[in-house]
Design a protein around this nucleic acid. Structure first.
Length: 285
DNA sequence: CCCAAGTCCTGGTTGC
DNA sequence: TGCAACCAGGACTTGG
């Protein structure tokens, strides 16, 4: 699933190719995934609009456009954003939005050979959402806590305050985007394994030392995810259609029944916060 | 038929 | 006791 490292990989690719380019036309193929405006308003407002920047907030992509408009995209569970050449879009029954762009306008995009006269939002499961709003990103983006990575705007003290007094399982708090934004099910399991903490511990029960370890592993694990360009365990590919590499270094997610890479015990699976959860009961306390 | 999962929503519980 | 904060679980979606 696209979590912070996957969305960040896509963002960096798009940021190298899109700023300065205009949206010539839009094909809206699945209306149910559009929020905040009608289809007619959406296509009319985007036509001729220039993309100013490509930003990320948690798992959201945010495209500021000229005229104080903001396009906000969430990839849900199986969403992909693909930059394709002008002959496309490649045929798929799961294409949901196709943004037809003009030729590259920036010298950088030309120099890097940025392809992409088309920006395709494809999503098998329709969990993804597209917003078009005025004066700022979609309202749901404002509800996000500080970005988990790179983590310049939160620290151990902030994490401690988020956890204090909570009886909810530790993993549920990591997954709650209002506390720290960008962590999903895969990275949550990996972070908790790395920190040696049980996903079912009450969040409020962590010691200061454990909070410190957790804070460090959130940043380290997501940094590794970004470095390896995301985790392609199911549908994820980057904007060029390439898979990431993080699936090769998974130590917890999906490893139930297998040997713990730290203590040699057996990894188990349980449900936490409604999500499948793999962990080592002997070395994650 | 069940499972996968991110977000929103609802309804029940807890604790000040 | 009242009320807000908190927390669990369902809905949505479709391919394996």
């Amino acid at each position: 699933m696209p979590e912070l490292p996957e969305v960040e990989t896509i963002r960096s690719q798009l940021a190298a190719a899109l700023p300065g380019r205009r949206i010539r036309a839009v094909d809206l193929l699945t209306e149910s995934m559009l929020l905040d405006v009608t289809s007619a308003e959406f296509t009319a407002a985007l036509e001729g609009r220039r993309i100013i920047d490509v930003r990320r907030r948690g798992k959201f992509l945010v495209f500021p456009l000229n005229g104080d408009l903001f396009l906000t995209i969430h990839l849900g569970m199986t969403g992909q954003v693909l930059l394709e050449g002008p002959t496309g879009p490649s045929v798929s029954p799961h294409n949901r939005f196709v943004f037809r762009l003009d030729a590259p306008a920036s010298a950088v995009a030309v120099a890097t050979g940025a392809p992409g006269a088309l920006l395709v939002f494809r999503d098998i499961r329709k969990f993804g959402r597209v917003h078009l709003t005025l004066s700022g990103p979609a309202a749901r983006v404002a509800r996000m806590g500080p970005d988990a990575w790179p983590g310049d705007d939160w620290d151990e003290a902030g994490l401690s305050a988020m956890m204090r007094g909570r009886r909810a399982p530790l993993k549920a708090v990591l997954l709650d985007q209002r506390h720290v934004a960008g962590i999903g099910n895969i990275y949550a399991d990996e972070i908790l394994f790395a920190a040696g903490l049980s996903p079912v511990r009450a969040a409020g029960s962590l010691s200061a030392h454990e909070i410190g370890k957790l804070a460090a592993e959130i940043k380290l694990t997501l940094a590794e995810g970004v470095r390896l360009r995301g985790c392609s365990i199911s549908d994820y590919v980057d904007a060029g259609g390439e898979g990431g590499g993080f699936q090769r270094v998974l130590r917890a997610y999906g490893r139930q029944g297998q040997e713990c890479l730290r203590c040699g015990g057996t990894m188990v699976r349980t449900i936490v916060a409604g999500r499948g959860t793999a962990f080592c009961p002997s070395c994650q306390r």
